[in-house]
Design a protein around this nucleic acid. Structure first.
Lengths: 137, 137
DNA sequence: GTACATGCAAACCGTTTGCAGCCTA
DNA sequence: TAGGCTGCAAACGGTTTGCATGTAC
């Protein structure tokens, strides 16, 4: 079900700004910062405002439609919460983003559970490294 | 080798404030924020200043004596960089912190390498979850 | 028509910076 | 004694908030 319909069903208004922000999030396969969204939004709405971006992201987050994550650069980035698409590899050289399945941490999860009795709740993990292309060069 | 000696060897001055900040970091087995360090520092130095805290943490980070990490609450926390003590489990209920060995991600690392040709560089990972005590209750 | 959403400006908060004076080496 | 370090105050940048106006429903 699309974000728009979910918002509408919950009684939120589908303003052009919200529609555009959702479109920007969808069109960006990168994890994107609030500021980048704002810049893109401005190309369509001359008077668009950052607080609209933040308020919309807050709303989408509350409705579990977007996920925010924070990397070592301390900038919060957002992406659409697609089912089973919560973990990513990000190449530190070319910034390529690869989605990885949820069960990738199963081995680690089991080891930690057996060794420490600790139950990890990995919701959205990002691993930095080098992709295969960049390793070759 | 202790932090003090390393700093001294590199030509940095061992001011009372720096010594105390290092002591606070050592005495706190928790990951601790700049603000918490500042509050503790003030109990000893009435006129202590936040910028001193930030500048000292910056220095210790540069010398690889402390590691900073950022969790979902977006607050940067610091802890002494002990060898082979880079990964932690943090219990979301009682805030207990458990250090885990570096090789804990080996299985995941291997899977990702085989499947995607992607070489992850996990330097300092924090996993949130429930510790064995809190799972029982 | 009405309540919700927007744009604007100002506040907020953690962090950084410039500077004068202080203190470690 | 000299240059690095501190405290202070002000700036900074990302984010949040209060308010009047605008608009989706």
């Amino acid at each position: 079900m699309s974000c728009h319909i979910i918002l509408q069903k919950k009684g939120y208004r589908l303003t052009p700004q919200r529609v555009e922000i959702i479109r920007i999030l969808h069109n960006s396969n990168q994890h994107i910062s609030a500021d980048e969204i704002y810049t893109k939004l401005k190309t369509k709405f001359l008077y668009a405002n950052k607080s609209t971006v933040y308020r919309t992201l807050e709303l989408l987050k509350e409705e579990n439609l977007v996920i925010d994550s924070i990397l070592e650069d301390k900038i919060i980035r957002y992406h659409i919460a697609a089912k089973g698409d919560h973990h990513h590899l990000i190449c530190s050289k070319c910034n390529k983003i690869i989605s990885i399945p949820e069960d990738i941490f199963e081995a680690t999860r089991k080891i930690i559970e057996e060794k420490y009795g600790f139950e990890i709740s990995i919701k959205h993990e990002i691993l930095i490294g080098l992709c295969s292309d960049c390793r070759k060069s």
